[in-house]
């Protein structure tokens, strides 16, 4: 942990070498997600609700997904850009250092600029908290935290899966962005809005619904089954197959070197 903090301090110092670029990206990141918010806002100007969900409810959903995604990007982004790490030989360097590989990849990048997005998510979240009409209880507060944690884990799982597959393709796998960026964009609305297929897919295959839809139903009071609160934890199991793919990838790499 101490070592991880050292890495972060190096990243921050590196970033501060390019202050202007840093702040511009930071602001850019804020506005990228702000535009997503505007889209929602104008839509709800016309329609009062989407499949029975109100504006505030959807905004709540969006802020949670955005928060989880930006946190995952801040800390786990290196896996998402893993093809670069393989391509420029940085991975070889990691192999000759006496530390765990997952740790080294994690520590190799710390994406400060994504704080712009995180800020947007927090602003929206606070806005919903103040103006919305969710009746809070201890269990609901815990559920929110679990949603965010579960979301971070699922997104990081996808990043890791991506990195694992990079060992086989050596190129970026843009199609996986459908899942990551897609989930971020579509996460604006509760998953059920997109129909049964998407709901099933995001329950059993890539478990978005487990940290977004089901616990969300509990929080807004549409479902009283408290089992839904722990579903985000079930979703974190998604990390297991992703880690296995990563391990297989590493083993393949050391036997082929390409």
């Amino acid at each position: 942990m101490k070592l991880y903090l050292k890495y972060i301090s190096i990243h921050i110092r590196s970033m501060m070498e390019y202050k202007k670029s840093f702040f511009l990206t930071l602001i850019g990141q804020f506005f990228v997600s702000f535009h997503a918010f505007l889209g929602m806002y104008f839509m709800f100007q016309r329609f009062n609700q989407v499949k029975g969900f109100t504006y505030k409810e959807c905004l709540f959903c969006f802020s949670i997904v955005l928060m989880a995604f930006s946190l995952a990007e801040i800390f786990f982004r290196a896996f998402d850009r893993f093809h670069i790490i393989i391509g420029n030989g940085q991975f070889d360097r990691m192999l000759v250092r006496p530390r765990g590989l997952v740790f080294q990849v994690l520590a190799s990048q710390f994406e400060l600029t994504r704080f712009g997005r995180l800020l947007q998510a927090i602003v929206l979240f606070v806005y919903v908290l103040i103006t919305g009409d969710i009746s809070w209880s201890m269990l609901r507060i815990i559920t929110v935290i679990l949603m965010i944690v579960g979301g971070i884990v699922v997104f990081s799982g996808i990043f890791m899966l991506y990195a694992g597959l990079c060992f086989f393709t050596l190129e970026g796998l843009e199609f996986l962005n459908i899942i990551t960026d897609g989930a971020r964009e579509y996460g604006k609305y509760p998953v059920s809005v997109y129909g049964r297929f998407v709901l099933k897919f995001s329950t059993y295959i890539v478990p978005f619904a487990l940290f977004q839809y089901y616990p969300f139903l509990y929080i807004i009071g549409k479902n009283t089954n408290s089992f839904y609160c722990i579903l985000p934890l079930v979703g974190t199991l998604f990390l297991v197959p992703c880690y296995i793919v990563w391990r297989i990838g590493v083993r393949k790499y050391v036997s082929t070197g390409s």
Partner: peptide, 8 residues
């Protein structure tokens, strides 16, 4: 690479 443990 083999001697330094990168390759098997």
């Amino acid at each position: 690479k083999i001697l330094s443990g990168i390759l098997t």
